[in-house]
Design a binder for these strands. Structure first.
Length: 826
DNA sequence: AGCACGCCGACT
DNA sequence: GTCGGCGTGCTC
């Protein structure tokens, strides 16, 4: 400790509290001079404790008098680059979150959770006299004898156990306090399977009993492809059980071997190298617009507005090749849901092992490995979901956001960033090209393109001149009048039948899972509501339960109304399970695959179901949201949307936009290959513009109309929006504090703003917490006012003294044209 | 967020 | 008298 000369590091400490959200100065010991860099993760003494922090600046003179020293540098290479540190400050300001929270969101989880603190029984503890210990200490020891060990946090849950007691017990050798590091082992054991005698596979198959269907399937697979394959891949590819393979190994037809290898999710897969495909004139023009800023090495953003099937991916691939030729790197963001093996394969096939893939299916350690390849410059392309925008490259030339309108680019937890905003910041920082690709861009993106902030490139043709599917609206009010009270219109039934009779496939889309949407008593009119959330419960037929889709609450379907004991309690509305049942009744023999959260929650189920459908094992694919995008099956010639208005009436200013996007995206699933496609849209709101414009393939018309409405109602992108959400376990306290906060805001918000609320949030109670919402609107393009709002909101947050009150702020309609670099961080 | 310090009630 | 409850305030 001392004040003498030397280098000083500014450190953001790993304490996500408002009081500690600022850099602290530490002396850098001479022996660490070369190791400590901006972005380094370090251990520092902080008050009476030792904590982790990130170096955000290095300077010569300290701000405070007495300085402590950095104790340790934790990694070989700093996990953050100076650019990402700067970005952290930007995000903290922009999204009103703690700097440490922003920085932590940029690195893989294994680096932040760093270690779990564990309390273990000391080996000597068994032989010691316990009588002198306090009651709480004894009860903890009893627990440890049973469990062996427990997490530090759990130990503290014992009455009377606190940190000082634990430390004392550790000094007296009753327990061991241990810091356990996360799984950062880079080796993995994988079993490989191969045929023993490839030439005898046919004979082997013949020798099996007729009942060994699965075994024969495996042998036939190897006949076609007599190479070795990793066991997990074999299982997921064929959907067979491990035991099936084991039987074949024991019978001597196959052999397997366990090998230790460096974890690489794709190492054992073979990729056919692909060459660039020739581009159509339209595609070439788009390619040229992207490549121009890359060659000039200056920032530019491009909205690539291309109809479904217009070949955007090939353009991305060729633009990336250009970037790599310059020795720069590319980041590709795709929505998690479309980060399918097919998608990844396309990139891997073109660029081989120069690609790192970051998706949620990876284990913590695998993710860390991929991330490290980026950090160490071993790869040139990073492809992944939202958080891949933080890929620690140093020389980015191109950032691509595919399906840029997707709501999954917005993070729902703190920091509540939008990957699009972060991408813009990084692209500006690097002088890179930013490509926003979509068939149905977000309204704000279209508007800012119209205002000239993005180059707007349209792709209006599908590759190989395939026609757009014919789209048809069926007005369900009309059906009702004709006496058809089922969920299928006559048109849909007709088309479904003829589609299946031609031997082709259909996709049916319904945005609600479960069997019915709500359960109501016909006697008293009360609906069943989740006891924790104030949301109607959904009936699930398979196990006769009612479930809350928000918190997971489930109970048996009651036999009588809990309010009036009447037996006349019934479910209403339509979910995927009910459609499935109805299909089975009306079309006996029809083979249906249902895909929703309930059928795809098991690992690999998603892929297996899609593979089954793709290989013709079903006539109909019935599903929710998750089947809307990215699917490409040549045999699909009919798409049916069972209730197009299911999301139209939600209390969300983006409801119309979402409906238009959804209809356009699902319609893109039909007739992508040689056979022409047809789309049937059932709705009770047949004349709504979002549905009409989608059916007419008139996106310009939709954006025009939607812009007018957004402007009229004062919504983004024509107004800026802060959405405040307050939640509290007690309704009365919440109401009172909501009123107080509104009064404070009313007094302190800058001029030119409007405060709306507080009103109950769209979900008024969630997981036993009541919720209130407030909106602050401010004029467009007015970043001065936005900045003043942020100051006011920070002050508001400082005034909260109720530990039970949770307060979160969402931002919308951030203005695009302002140069982020002139703002915020120092 | 932790953790120490400090100030009041109920126990040997 | 002291053990232990949790309010208050600080962390380079």
């Amino acid at each position: 400790m001392g004040t003498d000369a030397g280098l000083i590091a500014e450190v953001i400490v790993d304490v996500p509290a408002k009081a500690t959200d600022r850099p602290y100065d530490y002396r850098i010991p001479t022996e660490l001079f070369t190791e400590v860099q901006i972005g380094s993760r370090v251990k520092v003494p902080f008050g009476p404790q030792k904590r982790i922090g990130y170096v955000v600046n290095i300077k010569e003179r300290p701000a405070a008098g007495r300085l402590k020293s950095i104790q340790e540098v934790m990694d070989f290479a700093p996990p953050l680059t100076p650019e990402l540190v700067q970005l952290g400050f930007f995000m903290a300001n922009e999204y009103l979150c703690r700097t440490i929270t922003a920085l932590q969101s940029m690195i893989p989880a294994v680096l932040k959770g760093t270690y779990q603190k564990i309390v273990r029984l000391h080996p000597e503890a068994g032989r010691k006299e316990e009588t002198l210990l306090s009651l709480s200490a004894k009860s903890l020891l009893v627990h440890l004898r049973e469990q062996g060990e427990c997490a530090w946090e759990d130990a503290l849950r014992f009455a009377g156990v606190d940190a000082s007691l634990l430390r004392q017990l550790s000094e007296e050798k009753w327990v061991v306090l241990e810091e356990r590091v996360g799984d950062r082992v880079t080796k993995q054991k994988v079993i490989f399977v191969r045929p023993k005698k490839p030439e005898e596979l046919a004979n082997a198959a013949a020798s099996l009993s007729a009942r060994a269907v699965r075994q024969k399937e495996v042998l036939r697979f190897f006949e076609k492809r007599p190479r070795e394959i990793a066991l997990p891949d074999l299982l997921s590819e064929l959907g067979v059980a491990r035991s099936t393979v084991k039987t074949l190994v024991e019978a001597g037809f196959l052999e397997w071997e366990e090998r230790e290898l460096y974890r690489d999710p794709f190492a054992h897969r073979q990729f056919e190298r692909t060459a660039p495909l020739p581009l159509t004139p339209e595609q070439y023009q788009a390619f040229a617009s992207i490549v121009a800023p890359i060659r000039e090495r200056c920032f530019r953003s491009i909205l690539l507005h291309g109809v479904t099937g217009s070949g955007k991916t090939e353009i991305y691939l060729q633009a990336i090749a250009e970037v790599m030729q310059q020795g720069r790197e590319a980041i590709v963001l795709v929505p998690e849901i479309s980060l399918t093996p097919q998608m990844v394969d396309r990139f891997k096939s073109r660029f081989g092992d120069l690609v790192a893939v970051l998706h949620s299916g990876l284990s913590g350690g695998e993710r860390y490995d991929e991330w490290r390849k980026i950090r160490l410059g071993k790869v040139k392309v990073a492809i992944g979901a939202r958080s891949a925008i933080f890929a620690p490259f140093q020389n980015v030339g191109l950032i691509i956001i595919d399906e840029e309108h997707e709501s999954s680019y917005k993070q729902e937890e703190n920091p509540k960033y939008h990957a699009r905003d972060v991408a813009l910041w990084r692209a500006q920082h690097h002088g890179a090209a930013l490509v926003l690709g979509s068939a149905t861009p977000a309204v704000e993106t279209v508007v800012s393109a119209q205002q000239g902030w993005h180059e707007w490139v349209q792709l209006k043709e599908r590759v190989k001149g395939r026609p757009f599917p014919q789209m048809e609206i069926v007005d369900m009010r009309e059906e009702l009048r004709k006496g058809n009270r089922t969920m299928f219109s006559e048109r849909l039934k007709e088309e479904l039948l003829s589609c299946v009779n031609r031997g082709e496939q259909a996709v049916l889309f319904l945005n609600r899972r479960g069997f019915s949407t709500f359960v109501m008593c016909r006697e008293c009119g009360e609906a069943l509501v989740c006891p924790h959330c104030d949301i109607s419960l959904t009936y699930h037929q398979t196990n006769r339960t009612v479930r809350c889709h928000y918190c997971g609450f489930a109970q048996r379907m009651p036999g009588a109304c809990p309010h009036c004991q009447s037996k006349h309690i019934r479910h209403f509305g339509t979910g995927t399970q009910r459609v499935e049942e109805e299909l089975a009744r009306r079309f006996p023999g029809l083979r249906v695959i249902r895909m929703d959260v309930d059928t795809t929650s098991r690992k690999g189920a998603h892929e297996r179901l899609l593979n089954a459908f793709g290989s013709g094992k079903a006539d109909v694919l019935l599903g929710t949201q998750m089947i809307a995008k990215g699917l490409d099956f040549p045999q699909v010639t009919l798409v049916g949307v069972i209730a197009a208005d299911s999301m139209l009436h939600l209390p969300d200013f983006r409801a119309a936009e979402r409906t238009f996007q959804l209809l356009t995206q699902v319609s893109g699933r039909a007739g992508r290959h040689e056979k022409p496609g047809r789309v049937i849209i059932q709705t009770y709101s047949a004349d709504h513009y979002s549905i009409e414009r989608a059916v007419e393939h008139d996106s310009d018309g939709f954006y025009r109309q939607e812009s007018i409405i957004r402007k009229q109602h004062g919504y983004p992108p024509f107004y800026g929006l802060f959405t405040l959400l307050l939640s509290h376990p007690d309704r009365v306290s919440l109401m009172r504090q909501g009123q107080e906060m509104a009064r404070f805001l009313g007094k302190n918000l800058p001029k030119r703003t409007r405060l709306l609320g507080p009103v109950p949030a769209p979900i008024p109670r969630l997981k036993d917490r009541y919720r209130l919402q407030m909106l602050i609107k401010y004029p467009p393009l007015d970043e001065v006012t936005a900045e003043k709002c942020k100051i006011c909101l920070r002050e508001l947050e400082m005034r909260i003294d109720d530990g039970d009150l949770r307060f979160s702020i969402d931002r919308d309609g951030i203005v695009w044209e302002r140069s982020f670099h002139e703002n915020g961080h120092s």
